[in-house]
Amino acid sequence: MEEILKIEGLSKSFDDLTVLEDINLTVAKGEVVVIVGPSGCGKSTLLRCINGLESIEEGKVLLDGETVNPTTGNIRKLRERIGMVFQSYDLFPHMTILDNIMLAPLKVQKRDKAEVKKEAEELLARVGLSSKKDNYPRQLSGGQKQRVAIVRALIMNPEVLLFDEVTAALDPEMVREVLDVILDLASQDRTMIIVTHEMAFAKAIADRVVLLDAGTIVEQSDPISFFESPKTERAKKFLSTFEYSKQ
């Protein structure tokens, strides 16, 4: 399989705190990698390094052979090719849903307005939000906002999509509607890196599950082996936190 993203010996620390240590990860085109791990293990930081929202101190992130470096001029071009959806609903509150989606294709990619509008409407229909296109973000529920955020990332035609705990702030019922959209994307062979705490979802969508703990990759394997026969003690302990039984 053709590789699209390669992370080589990535390390990162904030002052004295080491957040990531010697991360090596290769993602193939069309692959869905799910990153799990306890809070504070560096999952979000890893995603943020991939699109250069965090500076990279040691190691490299390569998108299709090109180095991601937030201090160089080509970072903007690279970010156009890497879509990201954040945990907090980060829609632009002063714009309608349609304008939120169309801003970057028009201003960054300088695409034709009619064509962008048509695509935006198609994508909104696909996530079931056609009727909301002229509304403002404050008029939408959390789940709806997150679906719009996904569309806003998708319309840039990114080669890789990053999801940073996109359902962590949602009610259980809204989690479902957002995850269904992401499952739909997986069926279109999108390359995705997903950070999540939803284990059932991880199991269903992942081609590969990566367990991150204290800034290092502890275990990675296909979802069935990972969830049913984890190799490391750390993975077993982590997975046991999702099980409940009466003492």
Partner: peptide, 21 residues
């Protein structure tokens, strides 16, 4: 600040994101 970050993640320049966002 998340507004700045999400605009950056869409490939916007600092000037563009200041004016539009």
């Amino acid at each position: 600040y998340i507004q700045t970050e999400s605009a950056m993640a869409l490939g916007m320049s600092k000037g563009r994101l200041f004016i539009s966002v």
